[in-house]
Amino acid sequence: MTGTAFLFRNRIVPILLFALLALVPAYAAFTDDRFILLFVTRILVLAIAAVSLDFILGIGAMVSFGHAAYLGLGAYAVGILADSDIWAAWISFPVAILISGLFALVTGAISLRTRGVYFIMITLAFGQMAYFTATSLSAYGGDDGLTLWSRSEFFDTGLFSDDTSFYYLVFGVLLAVTLLLKQIAGSRFGRVLKGAKQSEARLHAIGIDPYRYRLAAYVIAGMIAGLAGALMANQSEFVSPAYMSWQRSGEILVMVILGGLGSLHGAILGAVAYLSMEEVLSGYTEHWRLIFGPLLILVVLYGKGGLLGLIKGGDKS
């Protein structure tokens, strides 16, 4: 790989991406376009979930097909607490993260016994169990979901209720999460994960059992996706089982693969590209999938490594 391409893809692209995202509220205020602000907020929330999935998928080679379950768990934590009149974010957010972490710990401990497509399917199974449990919560709307009457509160600030400050909150969380996970990926812990992806036998040979590292990574990713879910409940002021459907899990998975695996900011790029292409194309025709489907195929056929791989100067080795 040439030095400039590497520099471009791993330094300039993420900086540019975050810089552009930081300017969105200014653009929205300038053009007086509230829709774009809300739309990009939604993208960023899903980008947080996508980054957490890329952390276990791109770096740890764990293909989770049940990642939407954590979005749902986080969202339901906020929704159910709000239903019992607890609006304080300093209570609901830690609860959301903790519950997601617990779910990841239990299901991860079982799932990580399997490999490859069996792992994909067992994570799907747990995701579906969470989904159907949510549909049975008739006290909280069952299938129809639960409408929140307002957003969470953070002491007496308008952090959540004001659209612009909420945008920066989500933006800040995404930035922090990306930096944190990049830090972890570069640490000894991250190197063990990458090593396990290449050869488990060699790791065992030098006295490291990758199982615990994988489980820890799985729990971290689950907690972050749960945080994204708590933000999503606030963003849409609505919680429903659809947040946990396998289609949603698949969508996040597609975002990550589309962006390019293992770089973390690739997942953000994927979420932005996926959701804005959907938005733009569906503006032209209701049959936008006729264009979007073949586009995905072309990205795979002509770019190795997703959109990041398409960026010019990519390595051909």
Partner: peptide, 20 residues
Amino acid sequence: RDHLDQVLATFGVILFLNEA
């Protein structure tokens, strides 16, 4: 190709054919 490339491309085929 990698399994995940296959997932992405065949997902594209699903979108296309369901709409077609």
